[in-house]
Simulated scan of single mutants.
Amino acid sequence: MTASGAFWAFMALIAAGEGRWVAMFLWLGFALFVDGIDGPLARRLDVGRRLPHWSGDTLDAVIDYATYVLIPAYALYEAGIIEGPLAFVAAALIVVTSAVYYADTRMKTKDNFFRGFPVTWNMVVFALFATQPGSTAALLVVVFCAITTFAPLKFLHPVRVERLRPINLAVFALWSVLGLVSLASAFAPSPIVTAGIVVTSLYLLLVGVVLQALDRLTDRNEGERI
């Protein structure tokens, strides 16, 4: 199941090469769905014990780099969301910082957050396609995510993080529904849908950072009382 992601990535790449962005994101969305269920299934079936000579983590990283990073970076560059030579710079930031991130063995925290932006460029680039924020704003989003890839900041894993899990899952589900509506409109959604994608994207991107800041503030206040 995990290896099938290579074929979904291939299909997405064909669509991207032909400029069929809706089809590309549908294939990437299907790859994201597979990526979301293969891990729990592997743990349930104890695949690590049954196939000790095969690394699911390595296979998953190979597939994820294609579907989360390379293809979205190509789409961002080719679609002209960021204008001129800066599109090349943005794509370079995405593929290089992501490659380094996949080599970082500290990418997960003990409470199942990601340490640093988890290079989910498929979601970021999709949000840029859906909202069309303008070249400068899109570039700033890319620069922010690239920089925070290496920052000691927490970013949400909507499924595995237990804290606020019902809210996180609800926001992720809403983001997904709004995304499907945007795809159905060929990236010409209503202002309400666009606003919803902006709000849910910001929540998913920043809720971990906000919770981390609140925890530090609480710890500092308790330390002062002591």
Rank of each mutant, 00 (worst) to 15 (best):
V171W: 05
L205R: 04
V62F: 09
A184Y: 05
R44V: 06
S98M: 06
H157V: 03
F187C: 02
G179E: 05
Q132L: 12
E162F: 01
P133V: 14
P158C: 02
A130V: 02
F7L: 15
F33E: 04
A151Q: 09
G39A: 11
L41I: 15
I226M: 09
A3R: 15
R225E: 13
S185Y: 04
G36T: 10
P191M: 02
V119N: 09
G80D: 03
G17W: 06
S185G: 13
T218I: 03
V207R: 08
W8G: 02
P40Y: 06
T136D: 13
F7Q: 08
F117S: 08
V210D: 02
D38Y: 05
D35Q: 12
K110R: 14
D111K: 10
S176L: 14
S176Q: 10
G39V: 04
K108I: 12
T148Q: 08
M11P: 01
V193Y: 06
N168C: 01
T105D: 13
A146Q: 05
K110S: 09
A151W: 12
K154G: 00
L214I: 14
G48F: 00
G80E: 06
D38W: 06
L204E: 09
Y68S: 08
D64A: 08
M24Q: 12
I197T: 07
E162R: 15
I71F: 07
L76F: 10
G84I: 07
L45Q: 08
G17P: 07
V209H: 04
P118I: 09
F126H: 07
Q212D: 11
L28H: 02
N168E: 04
G196P: 07
Y102Q: 14
V142P: 01
L164H: 15
G19P: 10
A151C: 10
G116I: 11
P189S: 05
N122L: 07
G36E: 09
P52I: 06
E18C: 10
S4F: 14
I167D: 01
A170K: 12
A92D: 01
W21L: 08
W21T: 11
P189V: 01
S98F: 05
A188H: 15
V159I: 14
N122M: 03
E222I: 04
I167P: 09
D64G: 12
T194P: 01
S98P: 09
V47C: 03
L205Q: 03
P133W: 09
V159P: 01
P52Q: 10
A90C: 10
A138M: 02
K108L: 10
V69G: 02
A66G: 11
P85V: 03
R225L: 11
I167K: 09
T148I: 08
Y68A: 09
A15H: 04
G223C: 00
T58L: 13
A15M: 11
G29R: 00
